[in-house]
Design a protein around this nucleic acid. Structure first.
Lengths: 190, 190
DNA sequence: AACGCAATGTAGCGACTGCTACAAGAGCGA
DNA sequence: TCGCTCTTGTAGCAGTCGCTACATTGCGTT
């Protein structure tokens, strides 16, 4: 924990990472200007100055979060495809168990909720992240898979259902569902 | 739209339905005492009086919402079981397309988000609703199904993933995933 | 040096937040 | 009738919200 950068030339680009870090930890619902500003080492006054208003700030922030999510998927992409659909499922489940992804999942459901409510920016971000995840999954599918695109869609749907059930206290339900789908071996954690 | 009941003996029991109606329409995130009170025909003063504080009000409200969700599932239960897993999936998808369920889904994702964040009451409500839905699904499974419990878990996981993708703008992804799972016929809407 | 403009600090506005102090009415038992 | 408790209304408090008016700083251009 060092001092928050003395004078790093305030701008959207320098602010967004700090804002995103705060939102990852504290959530979008309780994100008000003054705490956000404090986390970024500025004042609410400057956030409004750089983003225009809070709505635009949230929109930009969601776009940024979608971008870093995409980059994280790219970084986490194994050099070679999975050998089987099971292995493919295992890979993404392994990723989702990492602490950073756990933190992200908490934020993710807020984005889904905002998207369902029609809040500006939320749906764009959610759709972009799901599109990216779908592409990622498709590239991870076995080379000899008869239908990589369809398999990726099926896999993603099942996994997203699993993740939701997991966060809601039905991890056992989700785990057994994956076992029944024959997409996961018996080595699944929760 | 008639006058909001002149003097209907204020109590938790009479308040909760009115509060729930307001929350169904406007969401949980923006639910503050004064608008809630207005929707129930009272004052914030009385909400605090009857529920103690806002946190307890939300907890009670979530419990009430879980109860009416459960009752709605019971009411929507066909008299006989489905003939096939496909039909079982079709039934629940048909239910989820009804306007009331659409409204409910928007609220549902807020509950999931709150549960992920650890807000008091949210996880209990979400878990209860998923448990109920699982029971409902299991009772709807074909009588000759080799594994009704496992099938219900699998079906629910896949359907919840579908619903999430649908609200996020990936209805096509979800639809094609269901087709690939051979759990749904070609007559699926979105 | 003088100007001009972008960036920033200070202070505050009006609206809203959850919640509370205080008092008054209503019904009820003694 | 007297008190007592339950319920309700009125008013307001301290805090936070998004946002803005105004002044100041600093730096590049002329």
């Amino acid at each position: 924990m060092s001092e928050p950068d003395p004078k790093p030339k305030l701008s959207k680009e320098t602010l967004l990472p700090l804002l995103a870090a705060h939102v990852m930890e504290h959530g979008l619902g309780e994100a008000s200007l003054r705490p956000l500003a404090k986390a970024a080492g500025t004042s609410d006054r400057m956030l409004i100055y750089h983003f225009g208003n809070k709505e635009q700030l949230i929109i930009d922030l969601l776009g940024y979060i979608a971008a870093i999510y995409s980059a994280a998927l790219d970084a986490g992409m194994g050099p070679e495809r999975a050998a089987t659909r099971q292995e493919c499922a295992s890979r993404i489940l392994a990723m989702s168990r990492e602490p950073m992804m756990q933190t992200f999942m908490v934020l993710w459901w807020e984005i889904v909720a905002g998207s369902a409510r029609g809040l500006p920016g939320y749906n764009d971000a959610a759709e972009a992240m799901m599109t990216k995840q779908l592409q990622w999954l498709e590239q991870q599918m076995p080379a000899d898979d008869p239908d990589p695109a369809g398999g990726a869609r099926y896999l993603m749907t099942l996994l997203e259902g699993s993740l939701m059930l997991g966060t809601v206290g039905h991890a056992r339900t989700a785990r057994e569902a994956l076992l029944a789908s024959e997409l996961a071996g018996p080595s699944l954690g929760d």
